[in-house]
Simulated scan of single mutants.
Amino acid sequence: MTLAVGLAGCAAGGGQTAAAATRQVKAIPGSAASTYVASDSSYSGFTKENGTTVQLTVEPGFQIPDPGKLVDFLIRLGWSVNDNKPNSELFVVIDSAAPIDATAAAKGAGWKSASSLPDDSTGVFIDLKEVEKRLGGWPGKVPAMPAGVVVKDPVSPDPSTR
């Protein structure tokens, strides 16, 4: 019984559950409690839409030295989620004290379809056709977290010394 429950979140092609992806993104240094990965479904009329959202909230006192590298990792992480096959865009949000233009970062990392809402570039939508073309079929491989995507800000005071 335990084996069946353990395998229930695994798709035939691999990948990982949204819960496992959440644990992976929360392992990023400085990630806040509000960081998560979700694979959600909703209906637009009679059409079921599955989407994946990766939300990284970075605590004050941390910085993102290479936003393109971070956004690329988060896109790959989102594509590895095997809960529901997405049929709308993949959405990545980076919320930090020093705002990151996630759309510009994604474009800098070669994601041509990167777009955002007009009033908020901290979130980026990536077209699934481009994701599949670049990363292969769904679900994608579970990516290894690159080193140094979020680092302690060297000029920020240590909160424990206040």
Rank of each mutant, 00 (worst) to 15 (best):
L7I: 12
G9Y: 00
A12G: 14
G14L: 05
G15H: 08
A18P: 01
A19M: 10
A19V: 11
T22R: 04
V25A: 07
V25M: 04
K26H: 05
P29H: 02
P29A: 10
G30C: 03
T35D: 01
T35Y: 00
Y36E: 05
V37S: 05
A38P: 02
A38N: 11
S41Q: 15
S42A: 11
S44D: 14
F46R: 09
G61N: 09
F62Y: 15
Q63D: 08
P67L: 11
P67V: 10
G68H: 10
L74E: 03
G78C: 04
N84A: 13
F91C: 03
F91D: 02
D95S: 13
I100W: 00
D101P: 00
K107A: 15
G110H: 13
S113F: 02
A114K: 00
A114H: 02
S115G: 09
P118T: 08
S121P: 02
I126F: 04
D127T: 09
L128M: 14
K129H: 12
E130V: 10
E132A: 15
E132Y: 06
L135W: 06
G137S: 15
P143T: 07
A144K: 14
A144R: 09
V150H: 00
V150W: 01
K152A: 09
V155G: 07
S160P: 00
T161M: 11
R162Y: 14
